[in-house]
Design a protein around this nucleic acid. Structure first.
Length: 267
DNA sequence: ACACTAACCTGCAAGC
DNA sequence: TGCTTGCAGGTTAGTG
């Protein structure tokens, strides 16, 4: 899935064509994704006007005119297509008919995504989330969350209680830019290194948003065009490539997931 | 409270 | 050509 920049790009796209639209029809092709859809899912949506689309971490929050909120998480492979010309694809799970006659389709081959409706106040998937990296967040906050942890820093950066929005790609890239080994213990990261990490994470996420999200095989912008720039990654999926320092990009497994790094310049 | 694993799914690429 | 294996952007539930 999309990490924070990609979700933000999707938010922008959805915002442009959904804001002010009334939902005239909902077609569910199955009864669950990662979790079962809520009771009366269609009835709760039909007739509602979409007021705004916000983002919290990697979750899209679609504000409805009755105060309820449609929550959408894209999982690893979820995709919204707006103004869709067809909706009979194998993994087209949810179709929305809008009052301008357009249809929006949620497609998700792996079905790790989530669609739910809640009151806008509290949701179990949102309640434990840590700080937004592009809002109020600083090195003291990061340092305080790392100081009692014995897990590797790479693992900690993926923990959404430490900071939200950072996924496997940007965790690797941020550690590389910060010249910090992904295997360092979180509790051994200094306050100065936290300052560097906060700065680099912000730079990377901001640049990726500016680039319009990124593009991977499962990800497409809401208009169907690809939007990621894999070639701009310095280490992610670059095993064997020469690093600028003369070292070689290596791959290791942490928490069951690939980490890409340069052992020559990341200490 | 933290650390670690397994689990949820399908699709694709590489290797035999 | 097929089969098998491993891997993929995320997150939670369960165990110790």
């Amino acid at each position: 899935m999309p990490e924070l920049p990609e979700v933000e790009t999707v938010r922008t796209g959805l915002s442009r064509s959904w804001k002010g639209r009334r939902i005239d029809g909902v077609d569910l092709r199955r009864n669950s994704l990662r979790f079962p859809f809520p009771e009366n899912f269609e009835e709760q949506l039909v007739g509602r006007v979409i007021v705004d689309i916000r983002r919290r971490a990697k979750y899209l929050l679609i504000d409805l005119d009755d105060g309820n909120v449609l929550l959408s998480h894209l999982g690893m492979s979820g995709k919204w297509t707006l103004d869709a010309s067809e909706c009979e694809g194998k993994h087209d799970h949810v179709v929305l008919l809008l009052d301008d006659g357009s249809i929006s389709v949620y497609n998700d081959p792996r079905r790790f995504g989530v669609l739910d409706i809640f009151d806008g106040i509290s949701h179990k998937l949102l309640d434990h989330l840590g700080p937004e990296p592009l809002e109020l967040w600083d090195c003291e906050d990061l340092f305080s969350k790392l100081k009692n942890r014995k897990s590797a820093i790479k693992i900690a950066l993926l923990d959404q209680k430490v900071v939200v929005g950072v996924g496997n790609i940007y965790a690797c890239e941020a550690l590389y830019k910060s010249k910090i080994s992904p295997q360092r213990l979180s509790c051994n990261i200094s306050i100065d290194e936290c300052r560097t990490l906060v700065r680099e994470i912000r730079i990377i996420l901001t640049e990726a948003i500016k680039a319009g999200g990124s593009t991977l095989k499962d990800f497409a912008n809401v208009d169907g065009t690809l939007g990621y720039f894999p070639h701009q990654f310095k280490v992610y999926d670059k095993e064997g490539n020469m690093c600028g320092c003369g070292g070689i990009v290596e791959r290791l497994i942490q928490g069951g997931r690939s980490t890409f790094w340069c052992s020559s310049c990341q200490k």
